[in-house]
Write a protein that binds this DNA or RNA. Structure first.
Length: 425
RNA sequence: GGAACGGUGGCCGAGUGGCUUAAGGCAACGGUUUGCUAAACCGUCAUACGGUUGGAAACUCCGUAUCGAGGGUUCGAAUCCCUCCCGUUCCGCCA
């Protein structure tokens, strides 16, 4: 949702920002609806005011035993007029809400311009790919040769875009998740949450999955949704609350499965584990005061980077341009990890500052000490990191061509019973 | 799945058709008193929206809506009726 008052004061600012996402001017339609709604509301309120007044008079007259028929007739006439105005007002208000909730967030001033992912800007790199341009087997080959990845059986029981992991690789993924959670909770100050994986409509609206991205979601027969990311639950934990200054910063993280239809990605990344209907992710969410969100965004991105550093995986950090950034985000850093078989960097984390667009939808506000009014909080979310893709990266970057095994990264050894290498067993 | 009881402001909680402008309390904020803290006393204190005066803004004044949601009855609904949602407890089933 957007701040209608601010938009009214400065529509050019909004259209300019949205234009950087490739949108045509939206404010003329918004302002027209807004104006129409306000004039209907003003008219309606005048009638309501008279109705209330007349009702009081009727009460007074009747209590003295007088005849209030004239007043009662007047109210009856008013009610006819009100019914049609109410209907019109309801319709216009709904149109306005629908329109506003389908328009993405404003961009941060330092989000770069650009039309597509080709215009994203690299901000830093860490680590060096071991043998760039060398032809190496991908994780599918590696995993199947080890007998530890089984896409065929997964397809038999669930369909495409699922996998069955076994033995050492199953344990490796579990180790990755444990390591990430421990790092975020013990070193980065995040509180571990084990949340519900099914949520209701309001929650999905709050973090902007609804109404626009309904087709990407798995719904249940009883009207709930499988979470596409833990962000949805973690962020909505503070929905409809009025927080105090002392509550900030709120930092929570969770390790959950994520479910996505990948409706718009037909034919993309069909091989392997890069893009699945179900995958694990460790997610970080921060809730902060507006003036702190930029610094928190840097901090969160560094927390995600720290995971890859500890895993000793080569990666780069990019900032997404206006044409590639997500709906709810003002500014997004993506972390891309080196994938040897593809000879390129692939997204493994996305850290976004959502400003107040989610908090407006969730009605999450806070009150400053001594202040009378409430303000909307800022929300941020970031993967820390996508566990399934981290598994792919470890398998390929730690692959041993000598025997087809996978070396265990140092930080994972404690979680793998101290073994050095995953080999065919 | 069945039954009972519930859902009222930041929180607790009263309220069975007009005297509610939602009592009272807690918390918070401002003030008085005070060596400091505490206490006492006085005052302020829901949210959203519209109009209005002035404006950079805070804000002033008037109004409307909101007591889980949506309908209905009524001149008038937190209150009565209907439907739905959610919570708690008990029973049944179940890991």
């Amino acid at each position: 949702m957007h701040d209608l008052k601010a938009l009214r004061d400065n529509p050019e600012y909004y259209d300019k920002s949205w234009a950087r996402r490739g949108l045509s001017p939206q404010t003329p339609a918004i302002l027209a609806l807004d104006e129409s709604r306000r004039s209907l509301q003003t008219e309606l309120q005048a009638l309501q005011s008279r109705r209330n007044e007349a009702s009081k008079e009727i009460g007074a007259v009747k209590s003295k035993g007088g005849d209030a028929q004239g007043l009662m007739d007047e109210v009856a006439t008013l009610k006819d007029k009100m019914a049609s105005l109410e209907e019109q007002e309801r319709k216009v208000a709904e149109e306005l809400t629908d329109l506003l909730s389908s328009i993405p967030n404003l961009l941060a001033d330092d989000t770069p311009d650009g039309a597509s992912e080709d215009d994203n800007v690299e901000v830093r790199r860490h680590g060096e790919p071991k043998n760039p341009n060398a032809s190496v087997p991908d994780h599918v080959e590696i995993g199947e040769a080890l007998g530890m990845l089984d896409f065929e059986t997964a397809a038999k029981v669930a369909g495409t875009r699922f996998v069955i992991e076994k033995a050492g690789i199953a344990r490796l993924e579990r180790a990755l998740a444990q390591f990430m959670l421990d790092t975020h909770t013990m070193e980065h100050g995040y509180t571990e949450i084990n949340p519900p994986l099914l949520v209701n409509d309001d929650v999905m609206y709050g973090t902007t999955q609804l109404p626009k991205f309904r087709d990407d979601q798995f719904g249940t027969t009883d009207g709930r949704w499988l979470i596409p990311t833990a962000e949805v639950v973690l962020t909505n934990m503070v929905r409809e609350e009025i927080l105090e200054e002392g509550d900030f910063p709120i930092r929570v993280c969770a390790y959950t499965p994520c479910f996505r239809k990948e409706a718009g990605s037909a034919g993309k990344d069909t091989r392997g584990m890069i893009r699945q209907h179900q995958f694990y992710k460790v997610e970080m969410v921060s809730i902060v005061k507006p003036e702190d969100s930029e610094a928190e965004h840097q901090r969160m991105t560094e927390c995600a980077e720290n995971i890859l550093k500890k895993l000793e995986l080569p990666f780069r950090t990019i900032v997404l341009c206006g044409g590639d950034i997500g709906f709810a985000s003002r500014k997004t850093y993506d972390l891309e990890v080196w994938v040897p078989s593809q000879n390129k960097y692939r997204e493994i984390s996305s850290c976004s500052n959502c400003g107040d667009i989610q908090s407006r939808r969730m009605k999450t506000r806070f009150k400053r000490a001594g202040a009378k009014d409430t303000e909307f909080v800022h929300t941020l979310n970031g993967s820390g990191v996508a566990v399934g893709r981290a598994l792919v990266a470890v398998m390929e970057n730690y692959y041993d061509p000598q025997d087809g095994g996978i070396f265990v990264p140092n930080v994972l050894k404690p979680y793998m019973g101290g073994i050095e290498k995953i080999v065919k067993g």
